[in-house]
Design a protein around this nucleic acid. Structure first.
Lengths: 188, 188
DNA sequence: TATTATAGCTAATAACATTAGTTTTAAACT
DNA sequence: AGTTTAAAACTAATGTTATTAGCTATAATA
């Protein structure tokens, strides 16, 4: 009836994001995405070069959203308070957007400039928050890695249902953040 | 020329494990596995009921191997020493068997008894190691979750190339374990 | 108004998982 | 030893996927 829908990359990624969050990242296929957009799957190749490219673009899209969430909650805060706020924002994002969170972990294609940058932005944000503690030399970078490991590990295990035990999960998360900050203070 | 090869589930899983470690978990398909075993893919259905079942069985297989590595390195050790040894064993496994490590994270099918048990074994092992610290009440369970989060987060990020920075990764890992144990001591 | 780049389309191919139905062999039982 | 049988292999076929090639129509531009 009407070729030429007003499709652009953003609308495509939003549709992909919905599928990912509702049905899981692996359900984001050229076929399912085309169906949701009301077009035939070969038409998608006018916008992305293949499935891998789509996933890479979705990764960049997701990381930007995550970065936005994290930075929004971190402004006006510092030290332990900022670490807690940032951590909660991270976990909240993973809970609200399970599919997009998965997408943030897609191995960053070294070709893809945009995905690369989005990842760097997040690292720099965390680094900025941890500057507060005035760690020496490389210590800040180690701390960034450790905090990322904690947050990602927690989010990933929670998402996969890895915490089978009937024990308050939010309490665990507070415990986790406290462990980290007390570890940081110790390092000095 | 010769139907009736001496195939059994173990040999099939070993072949699947090789593919996973060499080419990535997503490359473990009915087609590639059959080719490696020298049979046609429909024949695999005499041993597993479908691809999902194969992946679930591979998950159980992987968790058993991981458990074995971890427990082997933990006997005869206690406290901080045991935590470090266990942590190193975990990371070593993820490095030596990237595909199998991915497989340990396959969402445990609630049907699959064996995968369930293998997961419980690991949790119990970690718990046993942390009993040393004589934490109160639910604290041990929180600690188990936090340690798992740390280890998994680190392994996963390292595997995905998430630590882009040119900074010694083993040093980060020591930092991580130290943070954890110092956090634990703090909790008491 | 004529041109052109592009966003959609259909048709076709190759890879995959899976099912149905068949053959063959190794073991189990007369 | 000879017969039966369950299981492990097979071929053939179906449906889904990603992807490429080539066609068509339309929206923007000249």
């Amino acid at each position: 009836m009407s070729p030429r829908k007003g499709l652009d990359l953003l609308k495509i990624l939003e549709a992909a994001a919905e599928i990912a969050d509702q049905q899981g990242l692996e359900q984001v296929t050229m076929a399912s995405l085309a169906k949701r957009l009301g077009i035939r799957s070969p038409s998608l190749y006018n916008h992305v070069s293949n499935l891998k490219d789509l996933r890479s673009k979705l990764a960049a899209y997701s990381m930007k959203k995550l970065y936005h969430m994290m930075s929004k909650e971190t402004v006006g805060r510092a030290g332990d308070d900022a670490v807690h706020a940032m951590g909660r924002a991270y976990i909240q994002f993973a809970r609200n957007h399970p599919g997009l969170y998965e997408a943030t972990l897609i191995a960053p294609d070294h070709e893809d400039q945009e995905a690369q940058e989005a990842g760097d932005d997040i690292v720099n944000l965390v680094k900025q928050v941890l500057e507060f503690y005035r760690l020496e030399g490389d210590q800040v970078l180690h701390a960034v890695r450790v905090l990322r490991s904690l947050l990602h590990g927690f989010a990933s295990l929670e998402q996969k249902g890895g915490f089978g035990l009937p024990l308050d999960i939010d309490q665990t998360f507070e415990w986790l953040l406290n462990t980290f900050v007390s570890g940081i203070h110790q390092m000095k």
